[in-house]
Nucleic acid binder design. Structure first.
Length: 218
DNA sequence: AAAACGGGGGC
DNA sequence: GCCCCAGTTTT
């Protein structure tokens, strides 16, 4: 995989995304420009489907849209509001601890540096980078399951470690592309390059893919 | 009854 | 780097 390839991929995805991207608003897009909502949505989204995350987040933010309001809620209520997302007890604790620390240590604002974000319990590189990109519009490479799967299929990395994928993409592309490539790859993964039964027959990037001819489906 | 949903943290 | 963990929803 070379820089030329990724630039061609970006060009094609820019065109293709109009064809198959679903109009549905993702939870992150909805929470866009509110670093706090991006952050908390990310906690809720762990191991749960996007739609459930969206609904649970909406219910929670309806009740507590800010760190100040959030830290005032009893843990049981937070747990109840996000119940369908699963792991509600752990998530409620993390949400409350983060909210408390935001108020106590940052005056109720979400910090905008990777290191400060990573210092919160429950916040890893994926969440921290998503807060930077979607919450603050700062460059970041956010490797979720979609991005990681696609980069493996394209031969960027041959690892189970998403951090390696993040570093590979950082090295391959200048920062001005980072937000866009993330958006394009996630949409590509959600709509076409699925975990199982990807829609290879309508994919224009199959020459980049190690999967071609192996288990083509549909 | 089993699979799908995806990331963080500990060792 | 590998392995373990948290629960609900869907099939």
């Amino acid at each position: 995989m070379k820089p030329d390839d990724i630039h061609r991929a970006i060009g094609i995805l820019r065109e293709e995304t109009r064809a198959w991207r679903t109009p549905s608003v993702t939870v992150v897009a909805e929470a866009s420009r509110s670093p706090f909502k991006v952050l908390i949505s990310c906690i809720i989204s762990l191991r749960t489907k996007d739609e459930v995350t969206t609904q649970s987040s909406a219910r929670l933010f309806d009740r507590a849209p800010t760190p100040e309001a959030m830290e005032g809620l009893p843990a049981e209520e937070v747990a109840r509001l996000i119940y369908p997302a699963g792991f509600y007890r752990t998530k409620a604790e993390q949400i409350l601890e983060i909210s408390r620390r935001l108020v106590a240590e940052y005056g109720g604002r979400v910090p905008d540096s990777l290191d400060e974000l990573l210092a919160f319990r429950g916040v890893g590189r994926k969440t921290a980078n998503l807060v930077l990109t979607l919450g603050f519009g700062k460059p970041g490479i956010c490797v979720d399951t979609h991005v990681h799967r696609i980069c493996n299929r394209w031969g960027y990395v041959a690892t189970k470690n998403p951090d390696a994928t993040e570093m590979a993409l950082r090295a391959l592309l200048p920062p001005e592309y980072w937000i866009e490539i993330n958006d394009l790859l996630v949409a590509f993964g959600q709509n076409l390059c699925h975990p199982v039964s990807p829609r290879c027959s309508i994919c224009r990037l199959s020459d980049l893919c190690s999967r071609v001819g192996v288990a083509q489906s549909r």
